[in-house]
Simulated scan of single mutants.
Amino acid sequence: MAKIFDCITEELQQFISTQHLFFVGSAPLSPTGHVNLSPKGLDSFRILSPNRVGYLDLTGSGNETSAHLQENGRITFLFCAFQEPPRILRLYGQGYTVLPDSPDWNSLYPLFPPLPGCRQIIIADIERVQTSCGFGVPLYEYQGQRHILVDWANKKGEQGVKEYQQQKNLVSIDGLPTPLSNLPGD
């Protein structure tokens, strides 16, 4: 059954470190807005302290999490074991976006693998840590990370990725601005 913790314990940190996949959830304040749930991988998640986490966010087709964080800060991370023993872990918190021109970028970016196409780092201060059984999660066998996104960013090149961000990542699907919309265009 569910257990609640004040922070990410050493045992939970170990669990997180063995997961190849995590999910990020966020939502706008509008009751008609779209809830976003995004799967993430590529060794992009880091525990910064028992109550702070972050992940390196790569350029994608949308930028929902960043837009929602700018509007209201709410964020949830979900990890679930696809191999034994079963477990689900949720981290609830308040988050914000760190862009490459931010003063915090230089201290945070070296904590992550250097991946092409990165656009920002998402940081969250964790207020609630909750585990549950995971008995209903099916068993899956990990085969490896996909490299399609990395290959896409390498092929586009730095300037091509920036142009794509200007076209596709400035507003959410509900029309909320993202922190990228505050950057001057090239």
Results as ranks from 00 to 15, higher is better:
66 S>D: 13
105 W>F: 11
159 Q>C: 04
69 L>W: 00
107 S>E: 01
138 P>R: 03
98 V>Q: 01
120 Q>M: 15
75 I>K: 02
174 D>H: 02
157 G>H: 10
150 V>D: 11
97 T>W: 03
114 P>K: 04
84 E>S: 12
65 T>N: 14
85 P>V: 07
150 V>R: 03
67 A>L: 07
86 P>T: 02
174 D>R: 03
101 D>W: 04
68 H>L: 04
158 E>K: 09
69 L>Y: 05
115 L>W: 02
155 K>D: 05
163 E>M: 07
117 G>E: 02
140 Y>K: 08
148 I>V: 11
79 F>C: 08
136 G>D: 14
172 S>F: 00
158 E>I: 11
176 L>T: 03
109 Y>W: 06
172 S>W: 01
149 L>N: 12
94 Q>T: 07
79 F>Q: 05
76 T>L: 01
67 A>N: 10
177 P>N: 05
152 W>E: 07
145 Q>F: 15
116 P>Q: 01
89 L>D: 06
75 I>P: 08
81 A>Q: 13
156 K>P: 04
77 F>G: 05
155 K>M: 03
99 L>C: 06
151 D>K: 13
109 Y>F: 11
99 L>T: 06
148 I>H: 13
90 R>P: 12
134 G>S: 05
122 I>E: 12
90 R>F: 11
147 H>D: 14
175 G>T: 15
97 T>G: 08
140 Y>G: 03
130 Q>W: 06
160 G>E: 10
182 N>D: 08
88 I>K: 00
162 K>P: 06
105 W>V: 04
88 I>Y: 00
120 Q>F: 04
183 L>G: 01
161 V>A: 03
131 T>P: 00
128 R>I: 13
134 G>H: 00
144 G>N: 15
74 R>I: 03
118 C>F: 11
148 I>P: 00
164 Y>S: 10
127 E>F: 05
90 R>G: 10
114 P>H: 01
89 L>Y: 07
95 G>C: 06
136 G>C: 08
121 I>M: 06
176 L>E: 01
163 E>A: 12
132 S>W: 10
154 N>E: 15
